[in-house]
């Protein structure tokens, strides 16, 4: 793909990924076929900030985990009142990273 397109993608979507992933995403996108561009450019990614807000407001019910797609862990949080409240607090700090990892997993389906 053209470097210009790739850089535009990186610029607009950098906040959705971990910083150490961005370089490999860029390298991978450059060698990728142009036919995949429509799919990649319209990919629905989860905003880490939104999941942080949800985690603070409704983390004890596990809704943050449900939202990013970790349904099993969400059920676990729901059944234990947010892991006795401790897991809910831990997730305030973990959920953004988890969201970015989920976004990376989503993008990886198209990259490889």
């Amino acid at each position: 793909m053209e470097a210009q397109k790739v850089d535009m993608f990186i610029m607009t979507n950098a906040k959705f990924f971990e910083s150490h992933h961005i370089n490999s995403i860029r390298e991978r996108l450059i060698v990728l076929d142009d036919s995949k561009w429509p799919m990649i450019s319209t990919l629905q990614l989860k905003d880490p900030t939104t999941s942080l807000i949800i985690s603070i407001l409704a983390g004890s019910l596990g809704i943050d985990r449900f939202m990013i797609g970790d349904t099993g862990l969400g059920v676990g949080k729901l059944l234990t009142c947010g892991g006795f409240g401790i897991w809910a607090i831990i997730d305030w700090f973990m959920i953004q990273e988890a969201t970015r990892e989920k976004n990376m997993q989503k993008l990886q389906q198209f990259l490889y």
Binding site: S60, C81, G82, F84, G85, A88
Partner: peptide, 8 residues
């Protein structure tokens, strides 16, 4: 009554 885990 102090034995309560629930944050909510």
């Amino acid at each position: 009554p102090s034995v309560e885990a629930c944050f909510i």
